[in-house]
Protein backbone atom coordinates (compact mmCIF):
# COMPACT_ATOMS: atom_id res chain seq x y z
CA UNK A 1 0.00 0.00 0.00
CA UNK A 2 1.07 3.59 -0.58
CA UNK A 3 1.58 5.06 2.87
CA UNK A 4 2.04 8.61 1.56
CA UNK A 5 -1.36 8.70 -0.07
CA UNK A 6 -2.92 6.91 2.90
CA UNK A 7 -1.87 9.62 5.34
CA UNK A 8 -1.44 12.62 3.04
CA UNK A 9 -3.70 12.70 -0.02
CA UNK A 10 -4.42 16.36 -0.62
CA UNK A 11 -4.79 15.53 -4.34
CA UNK A 12 -8.21 14.08 -3.46
CA UNK A 13 -9.17 16.89 -1.09
CA UNK A 14 -12.24 17.82 -3.12
CA UNK A 15 -13.17 14.37 -4.43
CA UNK A 16 -16.56 14.85 -2.79
CA UNK A 17 -18.56 17.90 -3.86
CA UNK A 18 -19.77 18.30 -0.25
CA UNK A 19 -16.20 18.97 0.92
CA UNK A 20 -15.80 21.61 -1.78
CA UNK A 21 -19.15 23.28 -1.01
CA UNK A 22 -18.45 23.44 2.70
CA UNK A 23 -14.88 24.72 2.26
CA UNK A 24 -16.02 27.42 -0.15
CA UNK A 25 -19.03 28.24 2.04
CA UNK A 26 -16.83 28.71 5.10
CA UNK A 27 -14.42 30.87 3.10
CA UNK A 28 -17.26 33.07 1.86
CA UNK A 29 -18.72 33.35 5.36
CA UNK A 30 -15.34 34.38 6.76
CA UNK A 31 -15.14 37.20 4.24
CA UNK A 32 -18.80 38.28 4.44
CA UNK A 33 -19.28 38.27 8.23
CA UNK A 34 -16.95 41.20 8.98
CA UNK A 35 -18.15 43.09 5.89
CA UNK A 36 -21.78 42.70 6.95
CA UNK A 37 -20.91 43.80 10.48
CA UNK A 38 -19.11 46.87 9.17
CA UNK A 39 -21.98 47.65 6.78
CA UNK A 40 -24.68 47.30 9.43
CA UNK A 41 -22.54 49.31 11.82
CA UNK A 42 -22.23 52.10 9.25
CA UNK A 43 -26.02 52.08 8.78
CA UNK A 44 -26.51 52.33 12.53
CA UNK A 45 -28.18 48.91 12.78
CA UNK A 46 -25.52 47.54 15.12
CA UNK A 47 -24.21 49.08 18.30
CA UNK A 48 -20.48 49.74 18.43
CA UNK A 49 -20.06 47.02 21.05
CA UNK A 50 -21.91 44.41 18.98
CA UNK A 51 -19.98 45.35 15.87
CA UNK A 52 -16.69 45.04 17.72
CA UNK A 53 -17.80 41.68 19.14
CA UNK A 54 -18.69 40.37 15.65
CA UNK A 55 -15.37 41.58 14.24
CA UNK A 56 -13.37 39.96 17.04
CA UNK A 57 -15.28 36.68 16.68
CA UNK A 58 -14.84 36.77 12.89
CA UNK A 59 -11.11 37.35 13.25
CA UNK A 60 -10.87 34.38 15.60
CA UNK A 61 -12.91 32.25 13.18
CA UNK A 62 -10.45 33.21 10.45
CA UNK A 63 -7.81 31.38 12.51
CA UNK A 64 -9.92 28.47 13.77
CA UNK A 65 -11.49 27.49 10.43
CA UNK A 66 -8.25 26.98 8.45
CA UNK A 67 -6.67 25.28 11.48
CA UNK A 68 -9.48 22.72 11.50
CA UNK A 69 -10.43 22.38 7.82
CA UNK A 70 -6.82 22.58 6.55
CA UNK A 71 -5.68 19.27 8.11
CA UNK A 72 -8.84 17.54 6.89
CA UNK A 73 -8.09 18.64 3.33
CA UNK A 74 -4.46 17.52 3.67
CA UNK A 75 -5.28 13.94 4.66
CA UNK A 76 -5.76 11.35 7.40
CA UNK A 77 -2.46 11.94 9.20
CA UNK A 78 -2.88 15.70 9.73
CA UNK A 79 -6.55 15.16 10.63
CA UNK A 80 -5.74 12.67 13.38
CA UNK A 81 -3.00 14.96 14.71
CA UNK A 82 -5.37 17.94 14.69
CA UNK A 83 -8.04 15.97 16.58
CA UNK A 84 -5.48 14.80 19.15
CA UNK A 85 -4.21 18.37 19.59
CA UNK A 86 -7.76 19.68 20.09
CA UNK A 87 -8.51 16.88 22.59
CA UNK A 88 -5.34 17.59 24.56
CA UNK A 89 -5.99 21.33 24.56
CA UNK A 90 -9.61 20.87 25.63
CA UNK A 91 -8.62 18.49 28.43
CA UNK A 92 -5.98 20.99 29.56
CA UNK A 93 -8.61 23.73 29.80
CA UNK A 94 -11.04 21.43 31.62
CA UNK A 95 -8.34 20.28 34.05
CA UNK A 96 -7.27 23.85 34.86
CA UNK A 97 -10.88 24.96 35.30
CA UNK A 98 -11.79 22.12 37.67
CA UNK A 99 -8.43 22.07 39.46
CA UNK A 100 -7.69 18.42 38.64
CA UNK A 101 -4.57 19.60 36.75
CA UNK A 102 -2.80 19.73 40.12
CA UNK A 103 -2.73 15.93 40.11
CA UNK A 104 -0.16 15.73 37.36
CA UNK A 105 0.02 11.93 37.33
CA UNK A 106 -3.66 11.67 36.43
CA UNK A 107 -3.36 14.40 33.82
CA UNK A 108 -0.32 12.66 32.33
CA UNK A 109 -2.32 9.41 32.12
CA UNK A 110 -5.20 11.15 30.34
CA UNK A 111 -2.74 12.80 27.93
CA UNK A 112 -1.13 9.43 27.18
CA UNK A 113 -4.57 7.89 26.65
CA UNK A 114 -5.45 10.64 24.14
CA UNK A 115 -2.20 9.93 22.28
CA UNK A 116 -3.10 6.21 22.32
CA UNK A 117 -6.52 7.00 20.81
CA UNK A 118 -4.82 9.04 18.09
CA UNK A 119 -2.46 6.14 17.38
CA UNK A 120 -5.40 3.72 17.21
CA UNK A 121 -7.21 6.03 14.78
CA UNK A 122 -4.14 6.47 12.58
CA UNK A 123 -3.44 2.75 12.71
CA UNK A 124 -7.08 1.92 11.90
CA UNK A 125 -6.94 -0.25 15.00
CA UNK A 126 -10.51 -0.16 16.31
CA UNK A 127 -9.97 -2.78 19.01
CA UNK A 128 -7.22 -0.66 20.52
CA UNK A 129 -9.47 2.40 20.38
CA UNK A 130 -12.17 0.51 22.29
CA UNK A 131 -9.73 -1.00 24.79
CA UNK A 132 -8.12 2.34 25.61
CA UNK A 133 -11.15 3.56 27.58
CA UNK A 134 -11.48 0.75 30.17
CA UNK A 135 -7.69 0.51 30.50
CA UNK A 136 -7.50 4.27 31.13
CA UNK A 137 -10.28 4.08 33.73
CA UNK A 138 -8.43 1.29 35.56
CA UNK A 139 -5.13 3.20 35.33
CA UNK A 140 -6.70 6.40 36.73
CA UNK A 141 -8.32 4.55 39.63
CA UNK A 142 -5.04 2.77 40.43
CA UNK A 143 -2.72 5.75 39.98
CA UNK A 144 -4.82 7.97 42.26
CA UNK A 145 -4.19 5.48 45.08
CA UNK A 146 -0.42 5.99 44.90
CA UNK A 147 -0.59 9.39 46.61
CA UNK A 148 -1.93 7.66 49.72
CA UNK A 149 -4.37 10.54 50.19
CA UNK A 150 -7.91 9.18 50.44
CA UNK A 151 -9.35 12.68 50.97
CA UNK A 152 -10.56 13.83 47.57
CA UNK A 153 -9.88 10.45 45.91
CA UNK A 154 -13.34 10.20 44.35
CA UNK A 155 -13.20 13.78 43.11
CA UNK A 156 -9.76 13.38 41.51
CA UNK A 157 -10.61 10.10 39.78
CA UNK A 158 -14.11 11.19 38.75
CA UNK A 159 -12.94 14.50 37.31
CA UNK A 160 -10.09 12.99 35.32
CA UNK A 161 -12.27 10.08 34.13
CA UNK A 162 -15.05 12.44 33.04
CA UNK A 163 -12.53 14.65 31.27
CA UNK A 164 -11.11 11.68 29.39
CA UNK A 165 -14.52 10.27 28.44
CA UNK A 166 -15.86 13.57 27.11
CA UNK A 167 -12.75 15.16 25.65
CA UNK A 168 -10.47 12.20 24.95
CA UNK A 169 -12.82 9.46 23.88
CA UNK A 170 -15.72 11.71 22.80
CA UNK A 171 -13.74 14.09 20.63
CA UNK A 172 -11.39 11.22 19.67
CA UNK A 173 -14.20 9.73 17.59
CA UNK A 174 -13.55 12.52 15.08
CA UNK A 175 -10.17 10.88 14.48
CA UNK A 176 -11.79 7.46 14.22
CA UNK A 177 -13.99 8.75 11.38
CA UNK A 178 -10.81 8.95 9.26
CA UNK A 179 -10.87 5.15 9.02
CA UNK A 180 -13.76 5.55 6.55
CA UNK A 181 -13.07 6.32 2.91
CA UNK A 182 -15.53 9.25 3.01
CA UNK A 183 -14.00 10.78 6.12
CA UNK A 184 -13.48 14.24 4.59
CA UNK A 185 -17.08 15.09 3.70
CA UNK A 186 -18.32 13.34 6.86
CA UNK A 187 -16.07 15.44 9.10
CA UNK A 188 -16.89 18.61 7.16
CA UNK A 189 -20.63 17.97 7.57
CA UNK A 190 -20.22 17.27 11.30
CA UNK A 191 -18.12 20.36 11.93
CA UNK A 192 -20.25 22.67 9.78
CA UNK A 193 -23.58 21.49 11.18
CA UNK A 194 -22.48 21.53 14.81
CA UNK A 195 -21.09 25.05 14.51
CA UNK A 196 -23.99 26.39 12.45
CA UNK A 197 -26.35 24.78 14.97
CA UNK A 198 -24.93 27.16 17.60
CA UNK A 199 -25.39 30.12 15.26
CA UNK A 200 -28.99 29.12 14.42
CA UNK A 201 -29.76 28.72 18.13
CA UNK A 202 -28.33 32.18 18.84
CA UNK A 203 -30.20 33.88 15.97
CA UNK A 204 -33.53 32.10 16.61
CA UNK A 205 -33.23 32.79 20.32
CA UNK A 206 -32.72 36.51 19.59
CA UNK A 207 -35.59 36.56 17.07
CA UNK A 208 -38.33 34.69 18.93
CA UNK A 209 -36.89 33.25 22.11
CA UNK A 210 -39.11 33.82 25.14
CA UNK A 211 -39.21 30.84 27.47
CA UNK A 212 -36.00 29.76 29.15
CA UNK A 213 -35.67 25.99 29.33
CA UNK A 214 -32.54 25.80 31.49
CA UNK A 215 -32.33 29.17 33.25
CA UNK A 216 -29.88 27.99 35.92
CA UNK A 217 -27.59 26.16 33.50
CA UNK A 218 -27.62 28.57 30.59
CA UNK A 219 -29.75 31.66 31.20
CA UNK A 220 -29.36 32.99 27.65
CA UNK A 221 -30.75 29.90 25.91
CA UNK A 222 -34.43 29.82 25.05
CA UNK A 223 -36.94 27.25 23.83
CA UNK A 224 -37.27 29.24 20.61
CA UNK A 225 -33.53 29.06 20.10
CA UNK A 226 -33.42 25.31 20.74
CA UNK A 227 -36.33 24.54 18.42
CA UNK A 228 -35.14 26.96 15.76
CA UNK A 229 -31.72 25.30 15.70
CA UNK A 230 -33.33 21.88 15.46
CA UNK A 231 -35.69 22.89 12.63
CA UNK A 232 -32.90 24.54 10.61
CA UNK A 233 -29.93 22.28 11.34
CA UNK A 234 -31.53 18.83 11.14
CA UNK A 235 -32.72 19.17 7.49
CA UNK A 236 -29.41 20.72 6.41
CA UNK A 237 -27.45 17.92 8.06
CA UNK A 238 -29.82 15.28 6.67
CA UNK A 239 -29.46 16.66 3.14
CA UNK A 240 -25.67 16.80 3.27
CA UNK A 241 -25.39 13.36 4.91
CA UNK A 242 -27.73 11.98 2.23
CA UNK A 243 -25.24 13.08 -0.43
CA UNK A 244 -22.18 11.85 1.48
CA UNK A 245 -23.65 8.46 2.44
CA UNK A 246 -25.49 7.92 -0.85
CA UNK A 247 -25.42 4.27 -1.88
CA UNK A 248 -25.07 2.96 1.68
CA UNK A 249 -27.85 1.84 4.07
CA UNK A 250 -27.19 4.87 6.30
CA UNK A 251 -27.82 7.13 3.30
CA UNK A 252 -31.60 6.48 3.40
CA UNK A 253 -33.91 9.42 4.11
CA UNK A 254 -35.02 8.10 7.50
CA UNK A 255 -31.46 7.47 8.75
CA UNK A 256 -30.26 10.84 7.52
CA UNK A 257 -33.12 12.64 9.27
CA UNK A 258 -32.43 10.74 12.48
CA UNK A 259 -28.75 11.67 12.25
CA UNK A 260 -29.67 15.29 11.52
CA UNK A 261 -31.77 15.36 14.70
CA UNK A 262 -28.95 13.64 16.62
CA UNK A 263 -26.46 16.29 15.44
CA UNK A 264 -28.68 19.20 16.42
CA UNK A 265 -29.89 17.82 19.75
CA UNK A 266 -26.49 16.31 20.63
CA UNK A 267 -24.78 19.60 19.84
CA UNK A 268 -27.13 21.56 22.06
CA UNK A 269 -26.85 19.05 24.91
CA UNK A 270 -23.05 19.16 24.62
CA UNK A 271 -23.29 22.91 25.00
CA UNK A 272 -25.46 22.50 28.11
CA UNK A 273 -23.08 19.87 29.53
CA UNK A 274 -20.24 22.36 29.40
CA UNK A 275 -22.57 25.06 30.72
CA UNK A 276 -23.30 22.85 33.74
CA UNK A 277 -19.60 22.24 34.33
CA UNK A 278 -18.86 25.97 34.18
CA UNK A 279 -21.74 26.88 36.50
CA UNK A 280 -20.70 24.17 38.95
CA UNK A 281 -17.09 25.38 39.01
CA UNK A 282 -18.18 29.02 39.01
CA UNK A 283 -16.50 30.32 35.86
CA UNK A 284 -17.79 31.98 32.69
CA UNK A 285 -15.38 30.66 30.05
CA UNK A 286 -13.03 27.71 30.05
CA UNK A 287 -10.09 29.99 29.19
CA UNK A 288 -9.24 33.17 27.30
CA UNK A 289 -7.46 31.45 24.42
CA UNK A 290 -9.85 32.45 21.63
CA UNK A 291 -10.82 36.15 21.71
CA UNK A 292 -14.60 36.52 21.55
CA UNK A 293 -15.20 32.80 22.08
CA UNK A 294 -13.51 31.93 25.38
CA UNK A 295 -11.58 28.69 25.35
CA UNK A 296 -11.04 26.05 22.68
CA UNK A 297 -13.42 23.84 24.66
CA UNK A 298 -16.10 26.53 24.49
CA UNK A 299 -15.88 26.13 20.71
CA UNK A 300 -15.73 22.31 20.59
CA UNK A 301 -18.14 21.45 23.42
CA UNK A 302 -20.99 20.66 21.02
CA UNK A 303 -18.83 18.09 19.27
CA UNK A 304 -18.00 15.91 22.27
CA UNK A 305 -21.38 14.12 22.23
CA UNK A 306 -22.13 14.38 18.50
CA UNK A 307 -18.93 12.73 17.26
CA UNK A 308 -19.41 9.37 19.04
CA UNK A 309 -23.18 9.37 18.44
CA UNK A 310 -22.91 9.85 14.67
CA UNK A 311 -19.90 7.55 14.31
CA UNK A 312 -21.64 4.67 16.06
CA UNK A 313 -24.94 5.32 14.29
CA UNK A 314 -23.30 5.07 10.88
CA UNK A 315 -21.23 2.06 11.99
CA UNK A 316 -24.34 0.33 13.37
CA UNK A 317 -26.31 0.83 10.15
CA UNK A 318 -23.53 0.39 7.57
CA UNK A 319 -21.41 -2.07 9.52
CA UNK A 320 -18.02 -1.23 11.04
CA UNK A 321 -15.83 1.21 9.13
CA UNK A 322 -13.36 -1.00 7.30
CA UNK A 323 -9.90 -0.31 5.97
CA UNK A 324 -6.35 -1.62 6.13
CA UNK A 325 -5.59 -2.44 9.78
CA UNK A 326 -2.24 -1.74 11.49
CA UNK A 327 -1.15 0.82 8.95
CA UNK A 328 1.31 2.48 11.30
CA UNK A 329 2.60 -0.79 12.73
CA UNK A 330 3.36 -2.04 9.23
CA UNK A 331 4.89 1.27 8.23
CA UNK A 332 7.38 1.06 11.10
CA UNK A 333 7.87 -2.72 10.58
CA UNK A 334 6.64 -3.47 14.12
Amino acid sequence: MNYRTHFLDFENAFASPVTLWITVGIGVALVLAPLVALGLGALGKLTAATRRDVLVRSATWAVIAPAVIGPILLGRGPTVLMVAAVSLWCYGEYARATGVFRDRVLSALVAMAIVALAFASADNYYRMFVATTPITMAALAAAAVLRDTPAGYIQRVALSAMGFLLLGSGLGHLGLVTTDAKYRPLLCVLILCVQINDIFAYCCGKAFGRRHLFPRTSPNKTLGGHLGALVLTAPLAAWLLGIVLDGTPAGSVVHCIVMGVVISVGGQIGDLVLGSIKRDVGIKDMSATLPGHGGVLDRFNSMMLVAPAVYHYVAAVNGPFVGPEHVLLRLFRL
Binding site: A97, T98, F101, R102, A108, V281, I283, A288, T289
Partner: peptide, 24 residues
Protein backbone atom coordinates in the same frame (compact mmCIF):
# COMPACT_ATOMS: atom_id res chain seq x y z
CA UNK B 1 -13.29 23.06 42.89
CA UNK B 2 -10.26 25.30 42.86
CA UNK B 3 -9.59 26.50 39.31
CA UNK B 4 -6.04 27.48 38.41
CA UNK B 5 -5.28 30.79 40.09
CA UNK B 6 -4.41 32.24 36.67
CA UNK B 7 -7.70 31.11 35.13
CA UNK B 8 -9.19 33.55 32.65
CA UNK B 9 -5.88 35.21 31.76
CA UNK B 10 -4.54 35.17 28.22
CA UNK B 11 -1.15 33.53 27.68
CA UNK B 12 0.64 36.88 27.55
CA UNK B 13 -1.11 38.01 30.76
CA UNK B 14 -0.37 34.67 32.41
CA UNK B 15 3.40 34.76 31.97
CA UNK B 16 3.43 38.25 33.49
CA UNK B 17 1.16 37.46 36.41
CA UNK B 18 2.12 36.63 39.99
CA UNK B 19 -0.91 34.33 40.01
CA UNK B 20 0.70 32.05 37.44
CA UNK B 21 0.27 28.36 38.26
CA UNK B 22 2.09 25.78 36.14
CA UNK B 23 0.40 22.69 34.73
CA UNK B 24 1.82 19.43 33.41
Amino acid sequence: YKPASDHGLTESQRVQSVHREPGL
